[in-house]
Every structure is written in C-alpha cells, then in structure tokens.
Design a protein around this nucleic acid. Structure first.
Lengths: 259, 259
DNA sequence: CGAAACTTTGAGTCGGATCAAAGTCTGTGG
DNA sequence: CCACAGACTTTGATCCGACTCAAAGTTTCG
C-alpha cells in the first residue's frame, strides 16, 4: 500500500491536501516521522463506527480508501452529517486538543486507513513545527468547510444544496485523482446525502430526478455523472458564485509562517 | 479600561473563556506579552465593517464591549451570519494561519476592542507555547460552535432554532457575568437573528410572538427575558438534549498538553 | 419632527415534509 | 444458483411550516 498513491497534481500546483497528514516529502526526517505515525493500517467494513464519541483512546484516522463521515445525533433520531472525508483526509484532529472526539466517526463504505494513536501524534505536535503547522492547517480547513456548509444549510434551497454538494464532491475527488470528465463513484446512499443536506430522503430523491430530467446530474446506483458541470454550477452559482469553490482555493492562501 | 473586567467565575471553576486571548494570569511574562498584544484599544460605531474579507492587514479583534459577527454574502443579497462574538471573545484567529480573513467582521452594536496586528500575534505563536495553545483552543472552540450551529440549521425547525439560540446566548452571557435571572440585553435586530438562523425576519417574528404568548421568551426592544428557562430548554431539548450546552462544556475537556 | 429602519400583522402561496406503498437492489443462506 | 429478507429508491397524494408580498405600526436617530 503506497502512502502517497492517492495524490495527483492539483489545480494549485503540487500542493498536498491541507486536510491530510499523508503526503510526500523530500525531507528525510519528516518522512520517517510520518512513516512511524502511519505504520498501523486497518480495514473496516461499511457502516462501521470507527471512532466512538468521547472515547479517550480514539485514534486519528487517515483514509487510504473509502469514505467516512462525522455526525451528530438528536434524541429523536434525526441525524446531521457534519463532515465528509475522502481518501487522503485525516479525521479526528480535534482529538489532539480535547483528548476525546466530540462526535462519532463512521464509515460509509469499506475503508482502509492508518490508525494513529493521538498521544503519539500529540508528542510530534510538540516536537516538530512542520507537523504542528500541518495539523493546524487541517483544523483550519475543517472549520472553513464547516462554515461553507453552514451557508449552504442556512441560505440555500434544495436544488442549490444538492448542486453545490455534488460540485464540492467532484472538486475534492478531482484533487485526489479520483474523478475526471464529470464522473465519479459516490460511496453514499441517498439517505446519507439527505442527512448531509438537511433534507428528507424523499425530497432529495425528487430533486435528483429533476436534475436527471434536466440532464444536469445522473446518479445511478453509486455512479455519478455530471454531463454539464457548467450548467450545474449555474444552479448553485445563481445563488452564490463560487461559494463552494472559493472556500476551497482560499484554503491554500497560507502565507503566514506561524505555528 | 480593565483588561480583565469582562470576566467572572464560570460554572466550570475559574476558567478563562476558550475563545479569548484576554484573561488574567499569575505568570508575569505571559501577562506582559498579553499586555503588549492588547495595548491598542479602538472603538467602532454600530454596523461598522471592522475587518474586510481578504484584507492582508486585518487585525485580530478582542472584544471589550459590544457584539460583533462574521458573515457570508451570496450574490443575490442573502446573508448567512456564521458566528457571533461577545465581550471577551477574540475574533479572526484564522487570520493567523491564512494571513487574511476569509469572511468580513461587522459590529452589531457600538464596540470597544483591542486591535492586534496578526503578524505580531503570529510571532508570539511561534515563540510561546502557552500562547500557541491558547490560540488553538480558540480555533477548536470556533469549530465546535460552527458544528453545533450546523446541526441547528440542518435539523431543527424554527421554534427549536430560536429556543436553542437564545439559550446559547444566555449561557455565553452568564459565563461572562453579562446575564442573570433569565435576563440580558441583546445587541441584535430581528434581522440579525433571522440571518443567523436561516429564517426570514417575518417568520422569526411570528415565532417570537408565539413564545411571548406562551411566556417562554419575551424580547422587547433589545431586552430579553426568559421567564422559564427550563420550559424553553424543553422546546429545544425535545429535539436534542443539551445540544447547545453539551458542546459548550465539552470545550473544557482539554487534557492533552500538545501544541 | 420627519425619514429611515425595524417590527408587527394579514392573506395567500409554495417548497419540502409526511405518510404510504410499490419497485429495485444487495446480500445471505439454503 | 436461486429465493428471500432487508435496505434503499422511487412514485403518488396530501399537508403544513415557512416564505412572499403588502401594508400598517413603531422605534430610532439625525
């Protein structure tokens, strides 16, 4: 299993994902440290709880393949999916600070991942500035994502939500070389999508039907085709030009060398 | 103007706000460093843009009095208020990482605040571990808030949203000694509240009328009275027991000593 | 004191939820 | 390899919460 296999050249030059601890480096020492952190590999089935809420021995999870998500549950069963994580992403960095994750992490597909003891990672945070910086960027990127999701839920109607989510997914997968030509495999059910977007599965499905009829987005099983990305962007963009995309590129505006 | 005047004993013992750089410390060196960071005091009128989106010389803002918020604008004029900041809070920490703020910051009332050059703060982040840790906790707390807001917008109906927001505000103000006995001054218009909750002002107003009739929440002008906090909690809690409150107390579960 | 901004109320509409049932896919065991 | 169960998707009918539009009050502030 190649640690760096998930990556490709991104639109921003050869920049590793900000949300990942998993990246190629020329620095020998860094490479060794990362190698040590990412040594333990695991595999989980679909719909498995990878990390329990409040578990003090919860690991950091760095995804090699498959999709996972974090979620909040309400007492009456409603579920809000808070974040979605794709191959390459490192999940659970808040654990470095709090010692225990605030929200559970679950797999949406079969996943392979690196299992990292958060105490070991925490040590490295103290020792190595490059690692500290890396962890921070990931934390900040998570926050940026949360805030653009906030705008999506607070201000957008169902069509805008669906369109912008699929565009975001497409962008993120293209970054990783996991999508091209408007096509990708989506490791989510419509129920996941509904809980992600704050819609009912029934209504989400109707929006998807409508998009299919308009030839904007076809989702058959777990295969997604965006026949006309521009047109789909227009559906989302009519409301907020580049909300999704702007947030993404801004993550790379890192210039301060603090932390 | 006393730097520490905004604080009082919180429910968690004498713990400074995680979202603030402004706190009392016995450590002489820390106190001096903070004093230096917080030297410049400013005052702004209501409805003033304190920090422009993408401004490379944007400061960190530590609020002494008054309320401010960060927001995202859509091209057709819709506005989502992303976060609300009360006296004691430090706003704009993402600038430490990105060099320029992703979203604008605006005052909702007359505010007095400490103006901190983010480059100076960034230096201290590199030099001083205690400060680094502090900045990080604030960043993590912001993210936690964003995610509980996410759940509110994604899963809750209008009444639940209003109830949980007012409870959150009440708690945060009590922490700071700015509210007691179910009473506080709210430095927001109903339009602000609507943009915070993803509702129209008209509908928000109807919910408030309903709450008043039920003697759950009275908002006259900028004065808020919660005659029956328990009952109001029940409106919010029926859906999610302690969503708001849980997230708050979890912020203090800091045990790892990394960063 | 007047203008502008905000709040309140009313009437009507619509997007998305709910409830229900029929299809379809997936996986498992016989 | 087929049959069956359970999970997911699709469709239809109906309902209701929240939005829209509009206008009248009220507060705020110059």
């Amino acid at each position: 299993m190649h640690v760096t296999s998930a990556f490709s050249r991104s639109a921003y030059g050869y920049s590793p994902l900000p949300t990942s601890l998993l990246y190629k480096t020329a620095d020998r020492e860094q490479a060794n440290a990362l190698e040590r952190l990412l040594r333990i590999k695991r595999r989980s089935e679909k719909d498995t709880l990878l990390v329990r809420q409040g578990d003090w021995s919860a690991p950091l999870v760095t995804i090699l393949s498959g999709w996972v998500f974090r979620y909040a549950l309400l007492s009456d069963g409603r579920r809000q999916i808070l974040s979605l994580h794709l191959p390459g992403d490192t999940v659970g960095l808040d654990t470095l600070l709090t010692g225990a994750p605030t929200y559970p992490i679950q797999s949406a597909s079969v996943v392979t991942y690196c299992w990292t003891d958060h105490r070991v990672a925490a040590e490295l945070v103290v020792e190595a500035r490059w690692f500290r910086r890396r962890a921070l960027e990931a934390l900040a990127a998570d926050r940026a994502t949360a805030e653009s999701t906030l705008t999506r839920l607070g201000q957008c109607n169902a069509e805008e939500r669906v369109a912008s989510l699929f565009l975001e997914l497409y962008d993120r997968l293209v970054e990783r070389g996991l999508a091209a030509d408007g096509q990708f495999k989506i490791e989510l059910t419509q129920i996941h999508l509904a809980d992600l977007l704050g819609l009912t599965p029934v209504h989400l499905n109707r929006v998807l039907q409508r998009f299919r009829a308009r030839k904007l987005l076809v989702m058959t099983g777990h295969q997604v085709t965006l026949p006309d990305v521009r047109a789909l962007e227009y559906v989302a963009v009519a409301a907020y030009p580049g909300m999704t995309r702007m947030a993404r590129s801004d993550e790379h505006l890192v210039t301060t060398d603090a932390f």
